[in-house]
């Protein structure tokens, strides 16, 4: 055994592999913890907004509620409808959940605190988030049920539509920073006028991520008042739990993406040097929590959009506006000679 640990195989492959596995495990553990307590946070905040208590029975302040929910979902029976398309039906939630987790590989939570610091980090994030639609569309089709199918179709068209404006928003940011690497996007030098110039894009991005994650007021794929539960109608127990976890992990991911693109990542807010004594990771988490709160806030505030209004907003308002903005940003950057 000792011979193995001193061999080249261990030092060249084994040790980095073990280190990477520990790293991945740590990321997944933290993300799942955040997901679990995001549901608690959501219920508490929504409760406060609607003047109720929220969960308060299980544990002190209801803090053990997410764990109780998890145990409940684990111990229930997973029902696979006989008319469903078995393999696809089971793979769909796993796919959604896996995609929500693998994107975290490139998110830098602090300087150098990142699993894979790749050149094309932002493209990787965009690719992974655009693949999320398959989980939903596969679930909708494989359930072999009308409501589920309608939910899947709605989700597919909605996510494809809003991806376009999201892509153009990202292009605007990339024009100002001149790199695709997420750590460099954060540390890139942005003058104040560029920050102000990008502010409308932040608004468009925030609305687009609501549509991208199928959240209220764009939660038509679930739309419980019209199609009962959309693509999740036939799912139960652990398969449902995977959808649920994947959806919340996606919301946290999109919040982190907003923080990386617009809110300066781990850097202290407004560039105040004195605040740099607080570790960067704390700033990152606080900023992400701010955007996560925005998700809940909109859910408790706005009624659901009608489907044609949703499509109109995506294609007739956001697409022309962001396209114009790409031209505007590049024009201004060239004029003021501020291209990175």
């Amino acid at each position: 055994m000792t011979e193995f640990f001193s061999s080249d195989l261990w030092t060249i492959y084994g040790l980095p592999f073990a280190f990477m596995m520990a790293h991945i495990g740590a990321i997944i553990g933290v993300v799942l913890l955040f997901v679990a307590y995001y549901t608690y946070f959501e219920r508490k905040v929504m409760g406060a907004m609607q003047r109720r208590q929220g969960p308060n029975t299980v544990g002190p302040f209801g803090l053990l509620q997410p764990i109780a929910d998890g145990i409940k979902l684990l111990s229930k029976e997973t029902i696979v409808p006989t008319q469903s398309n078995g393999p696809v039906f089971v793979i769909a939630p796993m796919l959604l959940f896996t995609l929500a987790l693998i994107a975290w590989a490139v998110i830098p939570v602090n300087a150098k605190w990142v699993l894979a610091d790749i050149n094309v980090g932002i493209l990787y994030l965009f690719a992974v988030s655009s693949m999320g639609v398959y989980g939903v569309i596969m679930a909708g089709w494989a359930s072999n049920s009308k409501y589920a199918f309608l939910g899947g179709l709605r989700s597919a068209s909605q996510m494809v539509s809003y991806e376009v404006s999201m892509g153009l928003v990202i292009v605007c940011v990339l024009l100002c920073v001149g790199t695709l690497n997420l750590s460099e996007i954060i540390t890139a030098d942005r003058p104040t006028w560029v920050q102000i110039l990008l502010f409308p894009m932040l608004i468009v991005f925030l609305i687009s991520i609501l549509a991208e994650t199928n959240r209220a007021p764009f939660d038509l794929p679930e739309g419980e008042s019209e199609i009962t539960g959309g693509f999740m109608v036939e799912y139960s127990a652990m398969t449902f739990a995977l959808f649920f976890l994947g959806e919340y992990a996606n919301m946290i991911l999109m919040s982190a993406m907003t923080v990386v693109l617009f809110l300066g990542g781990w850097l202290p807010p407004f560039g105040i040097e004195a605040l740099a004594i607080v570790p960067g990771v704390i700033w990152f988490v606080l900023k992400t929590l701010l955007v996560m709160f925005f998700f809940i806030w909109t859910r408790a505030t706005f009624p659901r959009y009608r489907y044609d209004q949703l499509m109109r907003l995506g294609w007739k308002i956001f697409l022309p506006f962001t396209l114009f903005y790409v031209v505007l940003v590049s024009g201004l950057l060239v004029y003021f000679d501020a291209l990175p």
Binding site: L123, A127, I137, A156, E163
Partner: peptide, 23 residues
């Protein structure tokens, strides 16, 4: 770069429309 563009364009957009139509 090509790999990511392949995933974004073909997997994320073109194949979704394929799947949409075929379904």
């Amino acid at each position: 770069f090509i790999a990511m563009i392949l995933v974004i364009v073909y997997v994320g957009a073109v194949a979704v429309l394929f799947l949409f139509v075929v379904m």
